[in-house]
Amino acid sequence: MSSPFGSAPVSGLVTVDRAVSELRRGLDVVVRDDDGHVLRVAAAEYATPDRMAGFAAPGARLLLTNRRAGTLKLRPLVGDPVALPLAGPLDAATIASLADPTADLDLPLRGPFSVLRRAPQAAEFAAVKLMKLARLLPAALAVDAAAADDGLLAVPAAEITAYDLAAARGLRIVSDARVPLADAEQSRIIGFRPPDGGIEHLAILIGDPPRHLPVLGRLHSECFTGDLLGSLKCDCGEQLRGAIRAIAEAGGGVLLYLAQEGRGIGLMNKLKAYRLQDQGFDTVEANERLGFDPDERVFQPAAEMLRLLGFDAVRLLTNNPEKVAGLTASGINVVERVPHAFPANNHNEFYLATKRAKSGHLL
């Protein structure tokens, strides 16, 4: 089935989205790659003795990202993900604790654990990527399976790894309404949805900026705690409201509100990262201990949203050079970086210092 909204086949997107739903419900799915590997996979954070029965066959393994394996001092790190045979000390409780680092400091003497000394399979990489798409911890149980294992949903590895780009290219406008804002009364909110019905993004169009000139714009990743609750742990709420004010004062522009909570790891995982920060780890270390990259966001959706709104050049409100690079790589001309910083408070000054020192933010 072809998509009327771009070159991405809708069937592949829908299959990946269905697999995400299955995993979040605690069910297993099958991942197959072009090299003939077929894996039955499940979320490691849901490991229980009963569920482990489906992974009792020879060759069953736990897949951890290189980031997570590194924090656990596992060697050798021969690729990403790292595979640990399900044997010896790897019972359900241990597997769940290896997936979730929030109890690491309470469990310092686990192991030793064996690591398979081979390059990872494409199906293994896709299995962990699928956990990320599901906003679960990036750790998977895997066992070799038949092509159609017990009627489980099967998804090609290539469709999983291509999902982000395919979903972005298939975005279309599904809603558009006038919404006067406190600091920008002449505003519209425009909703974007991928053809598989997956995660939706929003644009706040302020005024009527001309399409033939670079638009003043901001890419803002949603932050439930900062945007809605006024959390002092970050500067997201100030950045959101400050950008709306700045764009309105400049006569118009656009703010893209992207569904990329916690720099792309999801709200539940962000809360786990906050717990790790309370244990003394900084924001980058916390993400890496969870098994994620410091920043898991992708910028293709933002570029496609700008194009659908009629913009191909932007003056970008940001302190993050990665946003400039990401939009540029996606075909949007960033003609200027407009600084967008706010004073620190007692709760977020270490967070901001870490973004400056480790993530290259120009603060």
Rank of each mutant, 00 (worst) to 15 (best):
L232Q: 15
T225V: 11
R193L: 13
T318I: 14
Q260C: 11
E249F: 01
P294K: 00
I160M: 00
L327I: 06
V78K: 00
R172V: 06
L105R: 15
N345Q: 09
L232E: 03
V128H: 04
A87G: 09
K323L: 13
E296F: 14
G310M: 09
L107W: 11
L309N: 08
C236G: 14
A126F: 04
V41M: 11
I247R: 03
R118Y: 00
R135P: 06
E336Q: 10
R61A: 12
K73M: 11
A142W: 00
G326L: 02
I244F: 00
L90D: 03
D106H: 08
V179G: 00
A329M: 09
A142M: 07
A140I: 04
T354I: 14
A167S: 15
H361C: 07
A139H: 01
A146F: 00
I160D: 04
D150Q: 06
L219Q: 10
T161K: 05
L316I: 05
D106F: 06
K73R: 13
G88R: 12
R275K: 12
D208C: 09
D312V: 11
R61F: 02
P9T: 07
V284C: 07
S3N: 10
P101C: 02
L352S: 05
R110S: 12
A168D: 03
D176A: 07
R356C: 04
R169M: 11
R337G: 02
S11Y: 03
D100Q: 06
A83C: 14
G88P: 02
G291C: 04
N287P: 08
D100S: 13
E45N: 15
V41Y: 13
V338Y: 00
K132R: 12
L74T: 00
L27A: 15
L228G: 06
D196W: 02
A134T: 08
M52S: 04
V215S: 08
E288T: 05
L90G: 08
L141P: 04
V31A: 05
G88A: 14
R68G: 08
A19L: 12
E288K: 09
G59H: 02
G360Y: 05
T94N: 00
L23W: 01
T328Q: 03
D150H: 07
V174D: 06
P210L: 09
G264V: 11
L152D: 05
F192L: 14
V38E: 09
L77D: 07
S2K: 06
G251I: 12
I173C: 05
G266L: 02
Y163V: 08
F299M: 06
K358Y: 14
A357Q: 15
A53D: 15
G266H: 05
G331K: 10
